[in-house]
């Protein structure tokens, strides 16, 4: 039987929602084709992820445990995934599109002499290969692409599919992995910054994005307050991350993170192409900007023309009132 393998990303002990989205899509495709959808977890102790993964119904969970999987270390990850591919012989290896998978996809493809389809917004599988669509030209249009052969390495934009629980009892199989540190090649010296936000921006149901209009501490405090009331993740435009006002990990856009929340609220954001490329798939877009001609209003479902410093305080109060009602 042919196999679809989903790589499961875990951060701080929590399975990434975007990985469950990809797994759910693979489950669905495997059911259509009469194939098997399986999952791979690489963690210091990968067995810890099993219980969280089971409800999402992979036929089998492969675990590989090694202390190096605590961090993103390129060489051990390439070796481990290469080893898993050899053992499992999947037709497709699917990843959530993250900085972590972006780092690996090209090398995996070249190592196997097979195709990679990165950052897909939708994909299908048939007996010959993989086809689907991906945004190009700063996400202004879609290209249709296809890759035949096996294995095809696919990465999928977050929010493209819904994570869905399903019946079934997954079998668990441990794959052995050993690594000689002399083979590390690169050295991770330190983690320079780490975002302290409890809500992962790329997975948040609600995202507040701050732009150039957020000028000072007072503006930042308002963004924080709004995010707290809505239990939202906070992101920022490139202008604000480059100016050091927000952490670079929080940049939304072509260069940074892609978000596709249920609700996106852009505050003081003009809507430059490079930012829109990272948020245009949000379900409901609210924009607050004092410039009535800001391009963000062209894609906003609700555009508020006004000074964020005057709009946000009553907006926060009203949301708080609605929430407590």
């Amino acid at each position: 039987m042919s196999t679809l393998l989903t790589y499961i990303a875990v951060h701080d002990g929590k399975i990434k929602r975007s990985s469950l989205e990809v797994l759910s899509r693979c489950n669905e495709l495997a059911a259509e084709l009469g194939w098997e959808s399986v999952a791979l977890v690489l963690q210091p102790d990968a067995t810890k992820a099993i219980e969280g993964l089971k409800p999402y119904g992979p036929a089998k969970i492969y675990t590989m445990s090694h202390p190096h999987f605590h961090q993103h270390l390129t060489t051990p990850l390439l070796r481990a995934i290469g080893h898993a591919v050899k053992e499992i012989q999947p037709r497709v290896v699917a990843f959530a599109s993250t900085e972590g998978s972006k780092d690996l996809l090209g090398a995996l493809s070249a190592a196997h002499g097979s195709a990679a389809l990165p950052d897909m917004s939708e994909f299908s599988i048939d007996t010959e290969g993989v086809s689907g669509k991906r945004p190009v030209m700063a996400a202004k249009i879609l290209s249709s692409v296809r890759a035949d052969g096996s294995p095809v390495f696919v990465s999928v934009r977050s929010g493209s599919y819904n994570p869905e629980e399903r019946e079934g009892e997954a079998a668990v199989q441990e794959l052995s992995f050993s690594f000689n540190d002399a083979d590390l090649r690169t050295t991770l010296r330190e983690i320079v910054t780490a975002t302290s936000d409890k809500i992962d921006l790329s997975e948040a149901e609600t995202v507040i994005a701050a732009g150039r209009g957020v000028k000072d501490e007072e503006g930042r405090a308002l963004i924080r307050e709004l995010a707290d009331v809505l239990q939202a993740g906070v992101g920022a435009s490139r202008a604000l991350t480059e100016a050091g006002i927000y952490d670079p990990s929080l940049q939304i856009g072509q260069t940074g993170k892609v978000v596709s929340p249920q609700l996106y609220i852009g505050v003081g954001i003009s809507g430059a192409i490079q930012h829109v490329a990272g948020m245009s798939n949000s379900k409901v877009i609210v924009a607050i900007n004092k410039d009535p001609d800001a391009p963000i209003f062209e894609i906003a479902d609700y555009g508020i023309v006004g000074d964020l410093y005057k709009v946000l305080p009553p907006f926060i109060d009203e949301i708080r009132r609605i929430k407590s009602a």
């Binding site: 961090q71 993103h72 050295t187 983690i191």
Partner: peptide, 12 residues
Amino acid sequence: QGDHGQEMIELP
């Protein structure tokens, strides 16, 4: 720039 922060990597 990684997913959750910045990493300093020594590349030979």
